[in-house]
Amino acid sequence: MKRVQDFKLKSYRRLNRENYILTLQGDYLEKDMHPGNFAEIQVPGLPEVFLRRPISILDFDPAKKTISFYIKAIGKGTRQLGRLAEGDTVNIVYPLGNSFSVPRKGKVLIVGGGSGIAPFVLLGRALQQQGVETTFLIGGRTRNDIFLTEEFSRYGTVLVTTEDGSRGEKGLVTGHSLFAGSMNFDRIYTCGPDPMMKAVARLAGQRGIDCEASLENLMACGIGACLCCVTPSPGGNRVVCTEGPVFNTKVLGW
């Protein structure tokens, strides 16, 4: 069930100046959360930030009643969320949206970039629990833009591309040598900038591989009430916060 709830800021883990993991603790934690779900976080203490910010659920711990988020500070809200103090109250609406489908067996590829890597910790864990063989392919501009690879390596093989070649293969994720190979994956999951996801979806389509993408559209309500977050599809506009954020890319006509 969706809830609106106050949490206390428990801790930050700073990954670098612009990237951090925010952990909140509550008196209660909803347990029915799935890979791909997100929360609408109210940004405290900054009147210029009026609307909540949608952020994927990175991880949660039912025993400690904690929930965490990986945040890339790209603007006023995401920067402010990194400037709070321990014990500050943070109000969130959660869990929102649909989730990635988790097959019972097989072999999958996860392609992520930017803030789009956040949902893949929960997804990687769920896939591992099902005995699915998972490869993570993470892209960034430089090695300083690559995060969470340690977490991902617990759940599968991790490959990296950087545009400057400072880590992993040089180039974009879609240029990785993996795509030149046999590509015997049953499914590809992707989340990140739209052009990256569309390119991944195209490559998947050409090889007849099922592809699920998680969209990061601008949102106001996050619960299907305002219809601000829509994405076009051959069947009409889709409401990203409720019908998504995860879509089979065929549904989107990508």
Binding site: F50, L51, A220, L227, C229, V230, N237
Partner: peptide
């Protein structure tokens, strides 16, 4: 009605613009 194209929303000072 399909409504207008995305983007249909912009946050503003103490408010928002919509073009649903």
């Amino acid at each position: 009605r399909e409504g207008n194209d995305y983007p249909r929303m912009a946050e503003t000072a103490s408010g928002m613009l919509n073009a649903v």
